[in-house]
């Protein structure tokens, strides 16, 4: 059954192309992708290595500029935005979870989560309160004073999730969030995603592990820079 989220489109991608140019070699990674992701949808982007899934996520997450095509985030045309405006949009509307956790090593778990909140203009006390709440929510309230080096991989990834969602973004992008984790830690992370999704969070997750797409509403398969299947699921 195809679900209808047509009224609340969060991401709209039109004919997206990305070509990497290295010296004299041009590599076309995305070859004209069009898709729309409604608000509250949990989307998995799958495909084999080199299919273009991470590249697609980086374009949609405004971490990179596409070679051609347009991206709208919550109705905002991003292709004409200045660098500062893109940064502000990322700060206020997007959250990121990276494969290698990407926590700042000199900051504690709590401080890592506080950074986007401080950038949003919250006072230190408010940022601390919200960050702590986010950590408690993912079961790491007791580790808030630990540096990343004092946390396990699974714990670091959970801190990374807390950082991605503490400022209540409209979309969370996760790039292979379980790739570096063992089974148990991966399941914990996926459960957190399920909870976030249950609260209405829009999530775009890149993965190549089908077992972790159980809770996804939709699975988009890429191959050679093109969408080869777009499967909507009903739970």
């Amino acid at each position: 059954m195809i679900l209808s989220w047509e009224d609340n489109v969060m991401i709209q991608v039109q004919n997206l192309k990305k070509i990497f140019v290295t010296k004299h070699v041009e590599t076309s990674v995305l070859k004209g992708i069009s898709l729309s992701i409604p608000e509250g949808q949990f989307v998995a982007i799958m495909g084999k290595s080199g299919a273009g899934k991470s590249t697609l996520m980086y374009q949609m997450g405004l971490l990179d500029h596409p070679t051609a095509g347009t991206i709208e985030i919550d109705g905002i045309h991003t292709d004409t935005l200045s660098q500062n405006a893109r940064t502000k949009l990322r700060l206020n509307s997007l959250g990121y979870i990276f494969q290698d956790y990407a926590l700042v090593p000199e900051l504690t778990a709590l401080e890592n989560v506080m950074v986007p909140l401080l950038m949003q203009g919250l006072s230190k006390e408010d940022a601390r309160r919200d960050a702590l709440a986010a950590l408690v929510k993912i079961g790491l309230g007791h580790r808030h004073g630990n540096l990343p080096s004092q946390l396990s991989g699974g714990e670091q990834q959970r801190v990374s999730i807390a950082r991605a969602v503490a400022h209540k973004p409209k979309i969370v992008f996760a790039d292979e969030p379980t790739a570096n984790l063992d089974n148990a830690a991966s399941k914990v992370v996926i459960e957190i995603f399920r909870d976030l999704h249950a609260q209405g969070q829009t999530i775009v997750m890149v993965t190549h592990e089908p077992e972790y797409t159980t809770y996804c509403d939709r699975i988009i398969h890429l191959d050679d820079g093109l969408v080869v299947s777009d499967e909507i699921r009903k739970h």
Partner: peptide, 16 residues
């Protein structure tokens, strides 16, 4: 550099 990129990615301004 990687962490600078991440900070930028999560919305921390270059000026900060």
């Amino acid at each position: 550099r990687k962490y600078i990129g991440i900070l930028k990615g999560i919305g921390v301004s270059g000026r900060a």
